[in-house]
């Protein structure tokens, strides 16, 4: 049981870290660009909210599998498939939780406003400097929200892992899958215990989220 919880936390932590890094340029572009097709990219990012996770998982199973052109470079290195591996789960989780990282960051970057950035550049800051020293600190609340949502969403992830995991202990067996297995095998007592743990965790996450949101709302720039 401990191993399963540890693996779940590890998956969520790695996914969250990767997503915060990857989503930053994407969200920045979505917030700042004038490209007409940017909303098409935004919609693409949002797809995991709409697609049933098992469908997403099924596409991933194919995309990470031996017949996928995406896998050709890795196959040259001797990796036949990324399904059934922890790395595969990380890739799946990153895609699955992408909108939960990008959207809060995009909102945060929008809230920074052009004025602050203009002032920075008037004072001689380069684009990179104004991002690093003005936009990023002002967007800290967005990062908190993105991190919390991504972490929680990854912990609660089920369909994607079910499809590409293969239930390998210590590699791909996470809490949500274990609860499902326990219910299926009629071990309802253990399922209840684990589900209760998850419920308490979820409650604490949402509580933290709402309290942070209130605090940030009070100290928002311009107030």
């Amino acid at each position: 049981m401990g191993e399963i919880i540890w693996l779940t936390a590890k998956l969520a932590a790695i996914t969250t870290t990767l997503l915060l890094v990857l989503s930053t340029p994407l969200a920045w572009w979505l917030a700042r660009s004038d490209a007409r097709w940017k909303e098409a990219v935004g919609a693409l990012v949002g797809l995991p909210i709409v697609l049933p996770p098992t469908v997403l998982g099924f596409y991933l199973l194919i995309a990470l599998g031996p017949h996928s052109p995406l896998m050709a470079p890795l196959q040259a290195m001797g990796v036949r498939t990324l399904a059934f591996t922890f790395e595969g789960l990380v890739i799946g989780s990153v895609i699955y939780s992408l909108p939960f990282a990008v959207q809060p960051l995009r909102n945060a970057f929008l809230a920074v406003g052009q004025d602050h950035l203009d002032s920075a550049s008037t004072l001689g800051a380069s684009a990179w400097e104004s991002f690093w020293r003005v936009a990023l600190p002002l967007s800290a609340p967005g990062y908190f929200v993105a991190a919390i949502l991504t972490f929680a969403h990854t912990v609660g992830e089920f369909g994607v892992v079910l499809m590409i995991g293969g239930g390998i202990p210590g590699k791909t067996e996470v809490v949500s899958i274990e609860i499902y297995r326990l219910v299926e095998s009629l071990e309802w007592d253990k399922a209840h215990a684990l589900a209760a743990l998850l419920a308490v965790f979820g409650f604490l996450v949402m509580l933290t989220f709402l309290m942070l949101e209130r605090r940030f709302a009070r100290s928002a720039p311009g107030d």
């Binding site: 099924f58 399904a83 059934f84 499809m163 590409i164 293969g166 239930g167 899958i177």
Partner: peptide
Amino acid sequence: IVQGASITQAYQFVETGAA
């Protein structure tokens, strides 16, 4: 050994070539 949650899923793993 990789495990599908059901026999349907075990079959999907083979059919997609993942296993």
